[in-house]
């Protein structure tokens, strides 16, 4: 059989293994930072985190605020939770706006492998931003202690750490899922902003007005459900809120998006 495959009709694939997943992942990671736009985005995310912590440090020192390690990390998280989703979005949508998906999917026709590689690349960038925020937070906390002439307060804790980790990862994945759904940068960004900033406000108004709604809202408010993560361990109903709202905002768009990518005509 193999002699036939190698013969005049057919191609000999015995010597070519499939592209290892690790390689796809490394290529996707490289693609996320090898354009000017990509580099800027990661650079701004890191820079904004740095800026936020610096301002917070100055204000905290000037105002003698009671600040612990967790507060400094939170200052960085504030900016990165806005920018990480944009990174997640661009990972997917730029392939379509720049039409590079054509090349990507001819070199690896199993499109889902590419999507998983991209998702892992997004998580790596998230981990990088988190590590950076933790480090700068640490330095700021030390500086703060020196300025105040007291010993540093390291209150942050594992629950805070995991909350931070999951929160940032979900932020990135939220953007990623929407980009898979829309395959379009502006639409994904707009919907992400609406879901992150507008929906919670509307849910809040609704809850204030209607009692039945205030029982219902936590099940669809993914932002509020994530906020609980900083106070681990969660209760059963808190886990429930997280899972149900996460299903709505992460799993559903991602599922529909993956179906779309799998069947899309790549132009």
């Amino acid at each position: 059989m193999s002699s036939l495959a190698a013969g005049s009709y057919g191609i000999d694939i015995s010597g070519t293994p499939a592209i290892p997943f690790g390689r796809l992942f490394r290529v996707e990671l490289r693609k996320s930072v090898n354009t000017r736009a990509g580099r800027w985005l990661v650079g701004i995310t890191v820079g904004a985190a740095l800026l936020a912590e610096t301002i917070f440090l100055i204000v905290a020192a000037a105002k003698n605020l009671d600040s612990a390690y967790g507060d400094f990390v939170a200052a960085a998280a504030f900016t990165s939770s806005f920018l990480l989703p944009i990174i997640g979005i661009m990972l997917v949508s730029s392939e379509w706006s720049q039409r590079t998906a054509m090349t990507t999917f001819t070199l690896e026709p199993h499109r889902m492998r590419i999507v998983w590689a991209k998702m892992l690349a997004g998580m790596s960038l998230t981990a990088f931003v988190i590590a950076f925020a933790l480090m700068v937070g640490l330095v700021c906390n030390l500086l703060f202690a020196v300025i105040q002439g007291q010993s540093p307060d390291w209150t942050f804790g594992w629950s805070g750490f995991f909350g931070f980790l999951i929160n940032q990862t979900f932020a990135m994945l939220g953007g990623f899922a929407l980009a898979c759904l829309f395959l379009n940068t502006p639409a994904s960004i707009v919907v992400y902003v609406v879901y992150k900033y507008v929906v919670p406000t509307l849910l809040g108004i609704g809850s204030a007005l209607m009692v039945w709604f205030s029982h219902f809202a936590p099940w669809i408010d993914f932002q509020a459900a994530q906020a609980e993560l900083y106070d681990m361990p969660l209760t059963g109903s808190q886990w429930g809120h997280l899972i149900v709202s996460g299903f709505i905002w992460l799993v559903v768009p991602l599922g529909v998006g993956l179906w779309r990518i799998r069947h899309a005509e790549v132009k």
Binding site: G10, I11, I13, T16, P17, A18, T106, P109
Partner: peptide, 15 residues
Amino acid sequence: IGGLHYADIPNPGRH
């Protein structure tokens, strides 16, 4: 292509 569907060619860029 060579008896295979494109998606079944491992590392298709090499072929």
